[in-house]
Nucleic acid binder design. Structure first.
Length: 524
RNA sequence: GCCAGGGUAGCUCAGUGGUAGAGCAGAGGACUCAUAAGCCUUUGGUCGCCGGUUCAAUCCCGGCCCCUGGCACCA
């Protein structure tokens, strides 16, 4: 059994989870579920990033200890992912001892090898914001914005990691591994970035200014600053499991360069470890719609759609709408279009009419097919083509196209039903008509079962409900579930099932999705 | 400014060196098992602009315009 280790970015807990966080985890989950179905032994890691200046400041502002603060906010992220049926195998928190130990061990190792040295760090510091500022924080005229208060240039000793030393190695690695990053064009951006010489990386902060961090093993007056703390989680979580390197690290495009594409592989290389096999870089959900809803006095938080329309509808939308790697617009209108036309009208209604007709015309038991004429054969041929195309699409992360094909098959199944018109056959006592009726009922039930099996990694609960309604306990082998057969003959079906009820909106009213304002573009 | 992505039907997008595609929306029709769902038919586009290569360009090349994002020690 092939092992497949996949990670998400860990979320910084200084804030609440939003659409961007949710998307990344759902996308990773869809990949993880797909790989499991394909027979891989999957290890799926997610978690939270919990140290640093901002967390320390937020905790102080709330008058609680940092640990108490991160326990609470980390719990929020985890609760969301549980709600979204994200099937992670491990949830790592950077405040956990198992992580801190590994970070300290790696730092000690690098220090002893001379990869870390002490030097003066120079920068402009805002006392009010308790942070170093960057050149891009300046106003166009060179002054510092008001919110930073007094800004002074300070010089303090810190520890640096010899990043520049490995620049040539990294360029070489990227040149020789053209498919390291998906989508491919992102890799070009990294090489572009590497045309400029790197500086070494400052990896510490003195404890008097930042105490909420992992102490450096070789100087307890300092804590680790950011990179060795955050990035190492992918490794520390599996250090004793023999799973490194990861097959895929999923990240947003905002944290590709420099952290994941430059710092991380170099850090690993300096430690004598291989880089992850691949990075998968996703885009952002743009929400210009948030502005629009403001003008109507009704802001929309996409996460509220989960409660209103169900987890699977939400997951379906995210995966159906986004071309992995690109950006996409999130609007409630588009969500409703997908929900109504694809989930409710096309799939949901197929489920209900199938169950209803089986109950009405066959006493609630799926008959055996008795004929195989052109309509059956055509549908079956389409199924074979759809299935054969679907798996490779998923392997290339083209999940949205896969779902489109699945929907086309469902549409064809609806069309097949019209062609056979079981409601007419049901009125006939002719033996030929009876046989055709049985064939039609068997065929539509089988097609529905197959369609549900196909999209299981995106809509696990829906697939389960459909199987249950069809009286079908799925087997352990997903590929076998995709074979057209007579698995359902004799199965007792449920009389009816409305999976995706049409909302008030479709009757001319806006859905109630008011609430607090949502976040921005979808950072991880 | 540099780099990248994108600019194709009202909307969201797919696509190919050889008379432009899908879904949704719009129009018409037949049906009634079903979530007033489903099915059939159909309107609709100088494929961002200008040049070039070619028998032929939306697709290749050059230039330009517009939108989005990145340009490091921030995650």
């Amino acid at each position: 059994m092939k092992s497949f280790y996949i990670t998400t970015a860990i979320d910084y807990v200084n804030g609440s989870p939003h659409l961007g966080h949710a998307y990344e985890k759902v996308l990773t989950d869809v990949i993880a579920r797909f790989r499991r179905q394909m027979g891989d032994k999957v290890h799926f890691l997610t978690g939270t990033d919990e140290h640093g200046q901002k967390v320390q400041a937020s905790a102080r502002k709330q008058g609680v200890a940092p640990q108490e603060f991160v326990d609470k906010t980390s719990g929020e992220f985890r609760a969301l992912y549980d709600r979204l049926e994200v099937s992670y195998d491990d949830f790592i928190r950077t405040t956990e001892p198992r992580h801190q130990q590994v970070v300290r061990a790696l730092l000690q190792q690098l220090f002893e090898k001379g990869e870390i040295y002490r030097a003066e760090y120079r920068g402009f510091y805002s006392t009010r914001q308790e942070q170093f500022l960057q050149e891009k924080d300046r106003n166009p005229d060179g002054s510092w914005p008001e919110i930073f208060g007094e800004v002074t240039e300070i010089v303090e000793p810190n520890y640096f990691f010899k990043l520049q030393k490995y620049q040539a190695w990294l360029v070489d690695f990227l040149t020789q591994n053209e498919d390291w990053i998906f989508p491919k064009f992102r890799q070009k951006q990294v090489l572009e970035f590497l045309k400029e010489p790197l500086n070494d990386l400052c990896i510490s902060r003195p404890k008097e200014r930042l105490e909420w961090g992992i102490p450096l093993p070789f100087d307890e007056n300092y804590v680790t600053y950011v990179w060795f703390d955050a990035l190492v989680n992918y490794y520390s979580a599996v250090v004793d499991k023999g799973l490194w390197p990861a097959d895929y690290d999923l990240i947003g495009k905002d944290i590709l360069v420099p952290p994941h594409a430059v710092y991380w592989p170099i850090m690993l290389h300096a430690c004598g470890l291989p880089p992850p096999k691949h990075l998968l870089v996703h885009g952002w959900w743009l929400q210009s719609g948030a502005k629009m809803s403001k003008s109507t006095g009704q802001a929309v938080n996409p996460l509220e759609l989960v409660d209103q329309f169900g987890v699977d509808a939400f997951r379906y939308f995210l995966i159906r709408e986004m071309n992995v790697g690109q950006d996409s617009e999130f609007t409630i209108e588009q969500f409703m279009v997908r929900y109504n036309s694809e989930l409710a009208n096309n799939l949901g209604n197929l489920v209900n009419r199938t169950l209803n007709m089986t109950t009405r015309f066959a006493g609630g038991a799926v008959p055996a097919a008795e004929a195989n004429d052109a309509p059956e054969k055509d549908l079956r041929d389409l199924w074979i083509a759809t299935r054969d195309e679907f798996v490779p699409l998923c392997e290339r992360f083209q999940f949205h196209t896969g779902l489109e094909r699945a929907m086309a098959f469902i549409t064809a199944t609806n069309a097949y039903i019209e062609k056979r018109a079981p409601w007419k056959l049901g009125k006939s006592a002719e033996p030929a008509d009876r046989a055709l009726l049985q064939t039609a009922l068997a065929t539509m039930a089988e097609a529905l079962r197959l369609a549900a099996a196909l999209i299981r990694h995106v809509t696990p609960a829906t697939t389960e409900k459909i199987n249950a309604a069809l009286g079908h306990p799925p087997g352990p082998d997903w590929r076998a579930e995709l074979e057209w057969g007579a698995k359902l003959a004799g199965a007792k079906v449920a009389p009816a099932l409305v999976l995706f009820p049409r909302p008030a909106e479709s009757r001319g009213q806006k859905p109630e999705v008011g609430g607090q304002k949502s976040g921005g573009g979808g950072r991880s």
